[in-house]
Computed example of a mutant assay.
Amino acid sequence: MTTTLDQAKASARALRTSLATLDVSVTHSQALEVVAQQLGYRDWNTAHAALTPSTVGLGGAIPVIRVQDEQLAREFYLNYLGFTPEWEHRFEPGFPLYVRARRDDTVIDLSEHHGDGVPGSVTWIPVLDIDALLADLRSRPHPKLRPDIDPSFPGGPTIVVPDPFGNTLRLCQPLE
């Protein structure tokens, strides 16, 4: 459970009250410093910054992956990797396709638009269970891929999967 700023301040007040019953007097500022350290922060200013909710509300980044052939993209990302389209867009029939696709918590955009994404890009995707993912990928064999787990990647064991367009997906189970 995450501690909120209000909870941290209440802990500092409770600490002062508890210490006062033992005839130990600390300032509110000293109590805040102690609470910050108990929460694992260097000092109260650091704790305050970390516990203050963002008013910006940034969400997770969504990579735009450049694809050049709709059929190949569908076969690879949807059929092989198991992503599901959330929505698709074309300005008119025959124009480039733009697809938002999801698998579990991972969201990617696939774009045929020139200038969207850069061919040859790498997308790093965290995975909860790398062994289960490998078994899932092997259950739908790809004619040109034989993925395996590389345990030597920094950050954790990784499955490196090149797409048909020169992009690379690094599916990694992060180290704890």
Rank of each mutant, 00 (worst) to 15 (best):
residue 24 V to S: 11
residue 24 V to P: 02
residue 26 V to L: 15
residue 28 H to E: 14
residue 28 H to V: 00
residue 29 S to Q: 14
residue 30 Q to W: 06
residue 31 A to D: 08
residue 33 E to F: 10
residue 33 E to G: 11
residue 35 V to P: 00
residue 36 A to N: 06
residue 36 A to P: 08
residue 38 Q to K: 09
residue 38 Q to E: 09
residue 39 L to M: 13
residue 40 G to L: 07
residue 41 Y to A: 02
residue 42 R to H: 13
residue 42 R to K: 12
residue 43 D to P: 04
residue 43 D to S: 06
residue 44 W to M: 05
residue 44 W to H: 05
residue 44 W to I: 12
residue 46 T to K: 15
residue 46 T to L: 11
residue 47 A to P: 04
residue 47 A to G: 00
residue 48 H to G: 01
residue 50 A to N: 01
residue 51 L to T: 04
residue 51 L to C: 09
residue 51 L to W: 07
residue 52 T to E: 02
residue 53 P to R: 10
residue 53 P to S: 13
residue 53 P to D: 06
residue 54 S to F: 07
residue 55 T to D: 14
residue 55 T to Y: 09
residue 55 T to G: 15
residue 56 V to S: 13
residue 56 V to I: 12
residue 56 V to H: 09
residue 58 L to Q: 09
residue 62 I to N: 06
residue 64 V to W: 04
residue 64 V to R: 11
residue 65 I to G: 09
residue 65 I to L: 04
residue 66 R to K: 12
residue 66 R to E: 08
residue 67 V to I: 15
residue 71 Q to I: 09
residue 72 L to V: 06
residue 72 L to M: 14
residue 73 A to C: 07
residue 77 Y to A: 01
residue 78 L to H: 12
residue 78 L to T: 09
residue 79 N to H: 04
residue 79 N to D: 14
residue 80 Y to E: 03
residue 82 G to Y: 03
residue 82 G to T: 08
residue 83 F to K: 04
residue 84 T to I: 14
residue 87 W to D: 14
residue 88 E to F: 07
residue 89 H to K: 05
residue 90 R to I: 00
residue 92 E to F: 10
residue 92 E to G: 01
residue 94 G to K: 09
residue 95 F to G: 11
residue 95 F to C: 11
residue 96 P to H: 04
residue 97 L to R: 12
residue 98 Y to M: 12
residue 98 Y to C: 00
residue 100 R to N: 12
residue 100 R to V: 15
residue 100 R to T: 11
residue 100 R to F: 03
residue 101 A to S: 12
residue 102 R to D: 01
residue 102 R to M: 13
residue 104 D to R: 13
residue 106 T to F: 11
residue 107 V to C: 14
residue 107 V to W: 09
residue 108 I to H: 04
residue 111 S to G: 07
residue 111 S to T: 04
residue 111 S to L: 05
residue 113 H to Q: 12
residue 114 H to W: 11
residue 114 H to L: 13
residue 115 G to R: 06
residue 115 G to K: 04
residue 118 V to Q: 11
residue 118 V to R: 11
residue 120 G to Y: 00
residue 121 S to Y: 07
residue 121 S to K: 06
residue 122 V to K: 03
residue 123 T to I: 10
residue 123 T to R: 02
residue 123 T to H: 02
residue 125 I to V: 15
residue 127 V to I: 15
residue 129 D to L: 02
residue 129 D to Q: 04
residue 129 D to C: 04
residue 130 I to Q: 08
residue 131 D to Y: 02
residue 134 L to F: 02
residue 134 L to P: 00
residue 135 A to S: 15
residue 136 D to W: 06
residue 136 D to I: 01
residue 136 D to A: 10
residue 138 R to C: 12
residue 138 R to F: 06
residue 138 R to T: 08
residue 138 R to P: 01
residue 140 R to M: 03
residue 141 P to W: 03
residue 141 P to S: 13
residue 142 H to F: 12
residue 142 H to P: 00
residue 143 P to A: 11
residue 144 K to D: 14
residue 145 L to Y: 03
residue 146 R to S: 10
residue 147 P to R: 00
residue 147 P to Y: 00
